[in-house]
Amino acid sequence: MIAKLNLWWMIFRISLAERLVYRGDFMLSTFVRFLPIITQILLWTAVIGAGDSDNIKGMKIGDIIAYYLLVTVARAFSSMPGLTHGIAGEIRDGEIKKYLIQPIDLIGFLLVKRIAHKLVYYMIAFVPFAIVFFLLREYFSGWPPVHTLMAFGASLLLAFCIGFFLEATFGFIAFWWLEVTSLMFIYMLMNFFFSGHMFPLDFLPDWLRNIFDCLPFQYMAYFPCAVFLGRMTEAQVIHGLWIGLGWAVFFCLTANLSFKWGVRRYSGFGG
C-alpha cells in the first residue's frame, strides 16, 4: 500500500516538475486568453443599451460579464487540452504498450498527471486571473455566502471529473477508430455551444433549455457559474450537484470500460 502511494506521489512530482518548465508561457497565454472578454464587455454593453430594460432574462450587464469571467474559471477545470489526442496518438503509434506491461493503471496515471498539470496551471494562472478579476470587480456584486462558495467548489471538481473522464473515453475510442480528430471536433463544437461557454444558457427558449438540461455539457461551464452568481435556488443547486455527480460516475465507467474492452482488441507489434 505504502509502495503504491509512493509510486503515485512520484508520478505526481514528476508531472509537476515537467509542467513548471513552461510557467512563463502559461502566464502569458492566460493573460492573452482574457483579451476577448474586452470585446464581450463592449458587445453586451451595446446590446443591453439598445433596449428599454437594463437586463436580458434577469441578467444585467454586470451579471453577463461576471458570467463570462466565471466561465474562464470553469473551463480551467473542465478543459483537458491534449488528453484525447495524447491517448489516441499513443494507441496509434503503439506507445500504449508500455502502460500495458508496466504494473500501473493507465487511467490513474493520466489522472494524477492531469491533476499535477492543473495544479501548476492554477498556481501560475492565479496572478493573471487575480489581476483581471480585480480590474473587473465592479461587475460582481460581492462574494456569495460560504455555502454557495462550497457548492461552487464542488461544481468545479465535478467539472474537472466530467471533463477528464469524458475526454479520456473519446481517447480510448481510438482503439476502434485510430483517428479521433473529427470526433473531437464535433465534441468541441457541441461543448462550446451546449456547455454555456458561448453565452449564458438562460437566454435560450424554454423548450431548448429542457433539451440542454438532459446533456452533461452544462456541468462543465454553465452550472458552476450559475451557482456562483446565485441564479439557482438551494434545491436546484443540490439537484444539479447530484446530476453532475451522476455524469461524473457515468463517464468514469465509460472510460474504464472502453479502456478494458479496447485493450482486448489491441495488437502491439515491434519493440
Partner: peptide, 28 residues
C-alpha cells in the same frame, strides 16, 4: 463542414441576441 459549423454557431448566437434586442447598440 467543420468550418461552416463553427461559423454557423455564430449565426445562432446572434439570432439569440436579436430575440431580445432590435439592434446591436442604440441607434447604430
Amino acid at each position: 463542414i467543420a468550418l461552416m459549423s463553427w461559423t454557423g454557431l455564430q449565426l445562432v448566437f446572434y439570432n439569440i441576441i436579436f430575440q431580445f434586442r432590435d439592434s446591436i447598440g442604440k441607434d447604430t
